[in-house]
């Protein structure tokens, strides 16, 4: 996993609630056995019309936001299935962080495990960002170390993140390697509960 800390980019305003994992990555693209290559299918049925032509009304097709690293959406982002293909697709497309008032639990976990930074901000703060971002391209500066999102106009929002996940993300640690250090505890547990 790549370490993550500072992100400086224009934000992409996806002004929708309850964006579900079926929209993020549709099931017809879940058959691949690799972790990579899902970006071109991100929000496929919103980006493309049934005839395959791009839907220019969809925000990801708006050239003003091309190359953006930060996706901003409304509450309950990532609800639905546990498919990790969802954060893989978001990351593979080029995003490094997603900002929303709330995330579905499994999706949030899946982001953290892949070094995609999920940021919870209060609903009013997100609405404000969405308004600014829709009006004109709006730059954000994220610092994971400081737990802040700084807008181009100087507005600063702080966010909370579990200190354990923060360390994992800042250092890009492999969680499985860390857990191997607890092997004696796992063995002891198995002995104690007769699971050995």
């Amino acid at each position: 996993m790549q370490p993550i800390n500072e992100i400086h980019s224009v934000m992409t305003p996806l002004d929708r609630q309850n964006v579900d994992t079926d929209q993020i990555i549709s099931k017809e693209f879940l058959k691949r056995i690799e972790r990579t290559g899902f970006g071109k299918y991100l929000f496929y049925h919103w980006r493309f019309r049934p005839d395959g032509s791009p839907d220019n009304d969809f925000v990801l097709n708006d050239p003003r936001y091309a190359g953006s690293d930060i996706l901003v959406a409304q509450d309950n982002f990532g609800c639905g299935s546990s498919r990790e293909h969802a954060p893989w697709a978001i990351q593979d497309y080029g995003f490094k962080a997603v900002i929303a008032p709330s995330f579905a639990d499994i999706f949030y976990n899946n982001c953290v495990k892949n070094g995609l930074l999920p940021i919870r901000l209060p609903e009013e703060a997100v609405s404000e960002l969405l308004e600014k971002g829709k009006r004109e391209p709006y730059q954000l500066q994220i610092s994971l170390e400081d737990q802040t999102v700084r807008g181009a106009d100087g507005t600063v929002h702080s966010f909370e993140i579990d200190p354990y996940w923060k360390q994992m993300l800042l250092n890009g640690w492999d969680e499985i390697s860390l857990t191997f250090q607890y092997e004696p505890h796992i063995e002891a547990y198995e002995k104690k509960t007769a699971r050995a």
Partner: peptide, 13 residues
Amino acid sequence: GIGTSEVEHVLST
């Protein structure tokens, strides 16, 4: 339910 990274974590540990 868990994601694939967690599947790998459970398989390993």
